[in-house]
């Protein structure tokens, strides 16, 4: 089991610093992505196209961060040939990096919907669904990154379970939006935009869930993706 100090025991102090810095960079990127998501949701609620456009622009910064982290991971693998928990850490960072970048893209998509919605005016649903699911997803993302920072398997499992909740909410939100479309076809344009935004939020939830699964892999060396969590059972995780 990987402890907090797990990778603090190398003879090469330089290696420790490199791994630590990689982790810090990834979490800094995580912070940036969290901010993008919150701002995008805020812009959507207020239909503020100015803020929404700035989010689309900022996405380039996150892409740049992804490339830097990827590059450093490759350098570490080439130069240090990490093994055991170090290897798991590097692999996890590569995967989480990708998920975070995708979340950044989805946040930018939410912002694009905000721009379009701001041109068409308020949606009849007054964004109740987006507000609700957005809050849930924001918490999931924060918890998954916290779990990664603290190497906290219990929290990570909570995130995996929370994502199922989000999927359920997404289904019912879709149904209620369809009702709005049926009631008045003039709403269809706005509702479609809202559905796209919801879809992006749901995807963000999935990516947060992936991050949490990577954390379990990092700490326990167990792969719990694709529903294997229930197969393995709680005992395997020893929590």
């Amino acid at each position: 089991m990987l402890k907090q100090e797990g990778y603090g025991q190398h003879i090469s102090g330089q290696f420790n610093t490199e791994l630590e810095s990689l982790r810090n960079q990834l979490l800094a990127m995580g912070g940036q992505v969290e901010q993008q998501l919150t701002t995008a949701l805020d812009a959507l609620m207020k239909l503020d196209s100015g803020v929404a456009e700035s989010i689309v622009r900022n996405d380039a910064e996150i892409n740049q961060m992804e490339m830097t982290i990827d590059d450093e991971c490759a350098t570490i693998i080439a130069r240090r040939q990490p093994t055991a928990s170090d290897l798991r850490l590097v692999i996890t960072i590569i995967k989480v990096n990708r998920d975070l970048e995708r979340i950044g893209d989805e946040a930018a998509k939410v912002a694009r919907q905000a721009v379009q919605l701001s041109e068409g005016g308020m949606s009849p649903s007054s964004f109740v669904e987006i507000r609700h699911i957005g809050a849930l997803v924001g918490v999931l993302l924060r918890q998954s990154l916290d779990a990664f920072a603290r190497l906290d398997v219990t929290k990570a499992i909570e995130v995996v379970r929370g994502d199922a909740e989000v999927d359920k909410e997404y289904g019912s939100a879709m149904r209620s939006l369809v009702t709005f479309m049926v009631e008045d076809p003039r709403n269809i344009g706005a509702i479609l935009n809202e559905m796209w935004a919801l879809r992006s939020l749901e995807r963000i939830g999935d990516h947060a869930c992936n991050i949490a699964e990577h954390v379990v892999y990092l700490v326990k060396g167990l792969d719990i993706r694709h529903g294997r969590l229930s197969e393995l059972g709680e005992e395997a995780l020893d929590i």
Binding site: Q4, E20, N24, L27, G31, Q32, E34, Q35, R150
Partner: peptide
């Protein structure tokens, strides 16, 4: 959380 890098847990870009 003692021992953790502060900026890993408080990730707000402005704060960092």
């Amino acid at each position: 959380d003692t021992g953790q890098p502060l900026t890993n847990l408080v990730r707000a870009p402005e704060f960092n």
